[in-house]
Amino acid sequence: MKVRRGRRQQAEAGTGVQDVASGFAVELRGVRRQYGRGAGVVQALAGVDLALPRGSFTAVMGPSGSGKSTFLQCAAGLDRPSAGSVRLGGTEITGMSENKLTELRRSRLGFVFQAFNLLPSLTVEQNVLLPMRLAGQRQDRRRAAEVLAQVGLADKARRRPGELSGGQQQRVAVARALITRPDVVFADEPTGALDTGTAAEVLGLLRHAVRELGATVVMVTHDPSAAAWADSVLFLAEGRFADRLDHGSAEQIAARMTALTGRGVMAGAAA
């Protein structure tokens, strides 16, 4: 099944790899990723074509084993595809050296993970500034204060992560992801460890980053309620994008997942 697209998306997807002026933040062309060899080969991605415009919020869903994690890793340059091309912010990353990939991730990408991944020995401010430090940039404390204010933690800069609630820690992770004004923020189950109310607060921050800051967010999630915050939901099945839903409600997204997998999904699993 092909992903359902409007005329504009079809025209953009059919023009081949775009240059930096195209307005695309993330582009995958013919991306395949397989593991193993011979009879034991696993085709995690089986030919993915995708072009996401700058300033968009996209959710990626699919049943277990559909290729969601592999998609995110290949799109973010954390894993190399077996075939195909990946471009981020107009830059071809497929053949980059590990050193250049690391530099690109630190300076032009942001990451938000389910487990927060904050360093417990550092203060909130130091955790937020860590991408700048690792990239060899001047650690701009004024910028750190700015993003902490954006996530509602202006008064927590001197605290340690262990002194914060789970929701506050995830807010710190969002601030850290935004500190370098990245081309793309990749979020991997960012609400998986949060209760429903706190999850909505974090998703609201990602939505704000797109709407007010011009960020591009790509979020992998199992939760239809979380996916409903996105502009578009892409559904993966057996390593391919099998469907698309724009501006869908949680109920519509859950129904589309049910139709895709032939079994129910937990519409209320806003863990």
Rank of each mutant, 00 (worst) to 15 (best):
M1L: 02
K2G: 12
R4S: 12
Q9F: 07
A13V: 07
V20E: 15
S22R: 05
R32A: 04
R33F: 07
G36N: 01
G36C: 02
G38I: 01
A39D: 10
V41L: 00
A44H: 01
A51T: 13
L52E: 04
P53K: 00
R54T: 01
F57L: 06
M61G: 01
G62W: 09
G65R: 05
G67P: 02
F71I: 12
A76E: 07
L78D: 00
D79G: 00
R80G: 08
A83G: 10
V86F: 11
L88P: 02
T94R: 13
L109A: 03
F111R: 05
F113M: 02
Q114T: 12
L119K: 03
L119I: 15
L122H: 09
Q126Y: 01
A135E: 06
E146N: 04
V147E: 09
G152S: 09
R158G: 13
R159Q: 15
R160V: 07
L164T: 09
G167D: 01
R171D: 10
I179P: 04
T180N: 15
R181L: 12
V184T: 11
D188Y: 08
P190Y: 09
G197H: 15
T198H: 14
R207N: 12
V210I: 05
G214A: 05
T216Y: 04
V217F: 08
V217E: 04
P224Y: 10
A230V: 13
S232F: 07
V233M: 02
L234H: 04
L234G: 03
F235Q: 00
F235T: 04
L236V: 08
E238I: 06
R240Q: 14
R244K: 14
L245V: 07
S249A: 06
E251Q: 14
A255D: 09
M257V: 03
T258Q: 15
L260R: 00
R263D: 02
M266H: 15
